[in-house]
Simulated scan of single mutants.
Amino acid sequence: MTSTSETNGTFLAEIAWEVANQVGGIYTVIRSKVPQAKKVWGNNYLLIGPYIHHNAIADFEEHEEYDNPVGRAVLACREMGFEVHLGRWLVTGRPNTILLNPQSVMHELGNIKHFYWKNHHISFSKHDPLMDEVMAFGYMVFHLISALARELMKDQHTLLAHFHEWMGGTAIPDIRREQLPVKTIFTTHATMLGRYLAMNDQDFYGHLPFYDWEKEAANFDIETIVRLERACVHGAHVFTTVSDVTGRECAHLLGRSPDVITPNGLNIERFSVLHEVQNLHHKHKRALE
């Protein structure tokens, strides 16, 4: 049976650092939604993540299906010198997946950071290997999304790009700046600054309206990350988060209320924001004392 999205020509690309890369809870969230996403979107569903060799050899199977918009976009990026792997993530549903190796564009890192500072006023003053990989990945995602959008336009098809967290979303500001024919969605599962504040303030939610985000980000030495997160939030056409509580956190710390609350599904309690759990622990502990 052909899905509705295949009939109307809309494609969904979902981008996350955790695609085929088991490094945190979001890996489980994305993996668990694949069967339903495939059911709704069919072959118009695509996942994009980083190529991490030791994970890819176990969870990813490459193929050479290039006679379609996704395949042609992959070839276009390879012509730019990118290392791009096309295949399927070996999870239930076996979704079409593209993995991008950030190491293949590290020679461009200076330019990537320079233009991010020039265009979005975010500086990268410290040496951070993970940040370097994330920024290189975002650069590759931008060019891949651009190539894919061009291919889809040839058949009058449209592209939605759904980004998870700042590590997956650094392409958003440039997509918006260049006015690519792509509608972007950004989901945060918990704000970075909120995590730090909650670990250091037992009454985090009570104090939430009074925090100065710039001051606190500098205090925890995460100013670049927080500015990247805010750029993703404000650059996306649609902003979502996973609970009303996290939505309030976003409004105060990121400067934008979510357009939609999208619970992680399956077992919502299992994926509750860590600092929500921490604060409940403190609350009940005080009640017992």
Rank of each mutant, 00 (worst) to 15 (best):
W166G: 00
E18Q: 10
V40E: 10
V74Y: 01
P209E: 12
M140R: 02
T170H: 03
R230L: 05
E214H: 11
I185W: 05
H107Q: 15
E64R: 13
R176G: 03
G87A: 07
H127V: 14
P35N: 05
H54M: 09
Q179P: 02
C232R: 00
N264E: 09
E151P: 03
N279I: 09
H234P: 10
N68E: 14
Q156C: 13
I225P: 00
Q202G: 04
F124V: 05
E249I: 10
N8T: 09
Y116W: 11
L90P: 00
N55W: 09
P95W: 04
D155G: 12
E61G: 07
E289C: 11
R177C: 04
F124R: 05
N8W: 08
L75T: 06
K33C: 03
H85Y: 09
L254F: 12
I98C: 02
G9A: 07
T97I: 06
D67I: 10
H143M: 06
T241H: 01
E289T: 06
V182H: 01
E108L: 12
H189T: 06
G93Q: 09
D132T: 00
M167T: 02
T7Y: 11
E18I: 00
I52R: 14
A236W: 00
Y116I: 03
I122R: 00
N96S: 14
I57L: 14
E151D: 07
N8R: 13
H143I: 02
L253H: 04
M106Y: 08
F11W: 15
P35I: 06
L274I: 10
T241D: 05
H282F: 13
A161W: 01
V105H: 00
T170R: 00
H107Y: 15
A149F: 07
W17Q: 00
N200C: 13
N55M: 12
A236K: 02
K38V: 08
R286D: 15
F82P: 07
V23D: 08
